[in-house]
Design a protein around this nucleic acid. Structure first.
Lengths: 143, 143
DNA sequence: TATTATTGCATAGCATGCTATTCAAGTGAT
DNA sequence: ATCACTTGAATAGCATGCTATGCAATAATA
């Protein structure tokens, strides 16, 4: 068999993901946040005061990964945790004022990266591209 | 501004990349290799007896990342290094017999992951998808 | 040729992801 | 009420990626 990396979806996806992460990293560095915190912040900006388990249901990472990232976010003053009156095992996770204030800038950074990266595609290619990713992700998740 | 993660190229790409990596990891685990070694093995299966710098020219990762992965590959008996008669700073990197023997199985594993993951797209969507990724990568790399 | 600059790699330190394991708190069945 | 089961989260240990820095060998230049 022969194998061409430039024809391999997996190879291309990995490469593209690293390029996106680097770009976003550079964009959001001035805000004092890092890429791994982004998905968590997105959820908390929509709704905070939630448990780790709640977050886990919305972000497709392992529980240990989430727990570690939350620890770093607490260390960095982005979240704080309070007792959960309903269950002593879980805590409630809240954004700090600082994190709350970062929202607009973060949205704009992400939007900028997305827009610039997909500039090379035309409108219909962009739509198709996003749709294909959604399809692939859904099919892979439900295996 | 509002921001929908399911419409965000970056978010989708990151998610998809993790799904692919997990899948490939499971496929190649029986071979005794891990995903980060894959791009390097692909190059070395084409041509070994090369320097780290040669490899670096073919794989878009940082030099330190490559150096670390090569160390683990040496530890795992996948490569060995010999003196470079032309330059004492560099060494030549060679596949071991064990690594050489893994090629077909690895190609097949990767092919399988790609095929199954893109099953959800039809022929023309697949082609378009791969092409879009190539365009996006090329434009992001040359910034 | 002696000095300076560049180059090839290695290493330190960190973030993000994973699997596996542990532990305390809650739930259920007897 | 007790004992077993489940669940929410933390932790250990590792791979993969990054930036920054250091170092020895080579190349270039004064």
């Amino acid at each position: 068999m022969d194998f061409k990396k430039d024809d391999s979806a997996g190879y291309l996806i990995n490469h593209m993901a690293r390029l996106f992460a680097r770009e976003l990293q550079h964009q959001i560095a001035p805000l004092g946040i890092v890429v791994g915190q982004f998905p968590i912040l997105l959820e908390l900006w929509l709704k905070d005061g939630v448990t780790q388990k709640d977050l886990l249901g919305k972000i497709d990472v392992e529980q240990a990964t989430l727990a570690n990232t939350l620890n770093r976010m607490e260390r960095d003053g982005l979240i704080k945790r309070t007792k959960n009156p309903a269950d002593a095992r879980a805590q409630l996770i809240w954004l700090t004022e600082r994190a709350r204030a970062l929202r607009e800038g973060a949205y704009e950074s992400a939007q900028k990266v997305n827009t610039e990266a997909l500039q090379v595609l035309n409108e219909s290619e962009r739509t198709q591209f996003i749709n294909s990713m959604r399809l692939v992700i859904n099919s892979m998740r439900s295996d």
